[in-house]
Nucleic acid binder design. Sequence first.
DNA 1: TTGCGGTAAATATCTGACATTAAGTAGGGT
DNA 2: ACCCTACTTAATGTCAGATATTTACCGCAA
Lengths: 254, 254
Amino acid sequence: MSLSELQLAPKSGGSRALATILAHSILSGRWGSGDLFPRELDLCEHFGVSRNRVRNALAELTSNGLIERTAGRGTVVRPLEEWNLLDPQMSEWMAGLEAPHPQLVREVFAFRLSAEPFIGELAALSATDQDLANIERAFEGMCDSAADPARREEHAEHDVAFHDAIYRASHNLVWRQMGRLLRPAIIALIQRSHHQADSLADSLERHRQLLDAIRLRQPEAAREATERVLERTAADLGLDPDGRKVRRPAALSP
Amino acid sequence: MSLSELQLAPKSGGSRALATILAHSILSGRWGSGDLFPRELDLCEHFGVSRNRVRNALAELTSNGLIERTAGRGTVVRPLEEWNLLDPQMSEWMAGLEAPHPQLVREVFAFRLSAEPFIGELAALSATDQDLANIERAFEGMCDSAADPARREEHAEHDVAFHDAIYRASHNLVWRQMGRLLRPAIIALIQRSHHQADSLADSLERHRQLLDAIRLRQPEAAREATERVLERTAADLGLDPDGRKVRRPAALSP
DNA sequence: TTGCGGTAAATATCTGACATTAAGTAGGGT
DNA sequence: ACCCTACTTAATGTCAGATATTTACCGCAA
């Protein structure tokens, strides 16, 4: 309910940095839906910046649906359901978050669980040689950085690149933009799981099978391979892959 | 390359109105990728508003990826591929556009064509009684307003509500937010098609079959019914439902 | 209780000045 | 001739203060 411990690093220029701090305070669940956000002047005083920067930062939060501002009333925090999850700025904020809102993690993963098998099919149908090369290069990066536990985040970046290349292989702008959800989801993953060596090897093997299915243009195999990759991911996240609100379309399986 | 004929209505307050005008000028393709956008002071003079409002409007365009601004260089228009299609603000702008960028229409429709059959499945699996009631009410609204050609836009709103209710029936935040693409897509539809009486009756019948499939919890039937609805839509739009870059996953069909 | 007006509090906007960044340009040294 | 520096210019970014507008709240009277 307060921003007492929040601080703006001394030389961090731009209203961007301030917006990030404020966004993180909301994304991590510090404020409840409907709570009154601090007034502009309080923020000015607390962070020692001009009203202009505060207003710019708040405008950015507004455009992402995190807050709602009306003259005379003040600034209130909007409910999580109305946050603008698909904005790239939001993805960036979520990725930089140490402890994201639990419901957020669940919702995004539930989406991946329902959508990615289908995207795997699309990729197997539409991938060009260039797409395949991209996927392959990302996979090799994953393999290369897998051995050294000190390169966890590099590994995560290759992981993101792998799945993002699959989204891009759909060759549709909308699907492609959804791929931005991957980064926060996967960053959250490596921060939560302990990355046992055997779990990692297993994960790699499942990724390889997905790559092969796409390379061989086998949509159905790609769908199943994606499901197995996500099973592994769910286990690493400590989530139950079944029993979510969004179930996999089991009726599709022959 | 110029904004000569663009005008801001006299009493339209808020930087919102200005942002809408500028956004429309970009979304309709008036400026090419990489073009220099007018300078702040020129915009101030042309529209007769303060620099502050211009800056707020431009900030909104920036947050949606339409433009990129750097001190010293100026404001340049970003390529269509980097526009932020999934932002609700963008959907609103696109919906209010008389002549949207043709590639935009194609991309969004290609997405619907690939995703909505799948969403239909999800809805058939996860819809609650409340969801069903929402879908049904929207359908009745469509039927009610179908007879009178003077109520075209009311009909379109019910059409949007129908499909949006299906997106919502997936009970996942991410899918739900994608439903915002529907409004611009469907508004564009009624502005292009001539809405022959028989085509409208046919469309209604296909919607009814989709509703029934969801009500009976038959995912596969829902998928096929959605495909048929979109076939009708493609015909009304004058698009070829096959041969797009994103094909339907035909391999799924038994 | 309801309706009206007044006051306070918050955000929205205007104005003008200054700071920062980036690109181009002229000049001097090698 | 070439490169490097310093200056100029032009654009966006930031600051500060004053004013306008909206909203909520309170007192008061019909």
